[in-house]
């Protein structure tokens, strides 16, 4: 699905991302972890063609994301509030993002009923614009908007931050389902090692721009990661 070759990004003389090679196969659920400043968000932004790499390429379905727009047809993402049109109501936003994937209003409405538990009654029909919602609820809007079109590739940057525990658990189940039932390739970053090891089948650990660990999740992974982070601090 995704192939990264010799990728580098330098800010002020510091190499914030430096990945010689990385392959992500279709249907994999990837957890991206690492302390602040490890380069997770920069990597996401390069995969989404928001910033230009200084060196190297990112291929999505064998096409360079910086050259071709094809990846936009099967990729959805939510990195931060900068992805939300905050003066729309959540409904308007869902209709709009749905229409980009040719989903009719009726279709969006019926899809939204599937998320009523996830929304917990705090999103729809509240008479609020997205900008008036709390951070956690904004994240919910962004996550659902990227799940709804059933993309082939999904990227979420710290989706578990800011949302309440019950929603975290629901989100975990939703993401697991994406991987197992729908074979959607998912890349999720998180600071919560429990969640990531629980959801993802493959963990990429970043430190200072490099991927220093690439592990298939097993029963020892959580312990291994906890050891790494406790030594580091």
């Amino acid at each position: 699905m995704i192939e990264i070759k010799d990728l580098q990004k330098v800010y002020n003389g510091v190499r914030v991302v430096n990945i010689p090679e990385l392959n992500i196969r279709t249907g994999e659920t990837i957890g991206l972890i690492g302390n602040n400043g490890a380069g997770k968000t920069t990597l996401f932004r390069m995969m989404l063609d928001l910033i230009r790499p200084d060196k190297g390429v990112i291929l999505s379905k064998e096409k360079d994301v910086a050259q071709s727009n094809d990846w936009k047809n099967y990729t959805t993402s939510y990195l931060d509030e900068g992805f939300l049109i905050d003066y729309l109501t959540p409904e308007e936003y869902f209709y709009f993002t749905g229409s980009l994937f040719k989903l009719s209003k009726a279709h969006v409405d019926s899809e939204l009923t599937n998320y009523s538990e996830f929304f917990n009654g705090e999103i729809l029909n509240r008479g609020k614009y997205i900008r008036d919602l709390s951070k956690g609820n904004q994240a919910k809007v962004g996550v659902v908007a990227s799940l709804m079109p059933e993309p082939e590739l999904l990227m979420l940057d710290e989706p578990f931050a800011n949302i309440d525990p019950s929603t975290q658990i629901r989100l975990k189940n939703m993401v697991k389902e994406l991987g197992t039932k729908k074979r959607i390739t998912t890349i999720i970053s998180s600071h919560d090692l429990n969640h990531v090891t629980d959801v993802c089948e493959r963990i990429l650990l970043m430190e200072k721009g490099k991927i220093i660990k690439d592990i298939a999740t097993n029963s020892n992974t959580l312990k291994e990661l906890e050891e790494y982070f406790s030594v580091l601090s």
Binding site: L48, L50, F83
Partner: peptide, 13 residues
């Protein structure tokens, strides 16, 4: 500017 990233990554030519 507040949602420009969203425009760039979404399926808008």
């Amino acid at each position: 500017s507040a949602h420009f990233d969203g425009i760039l990554t979404s399926r808008i030519q």
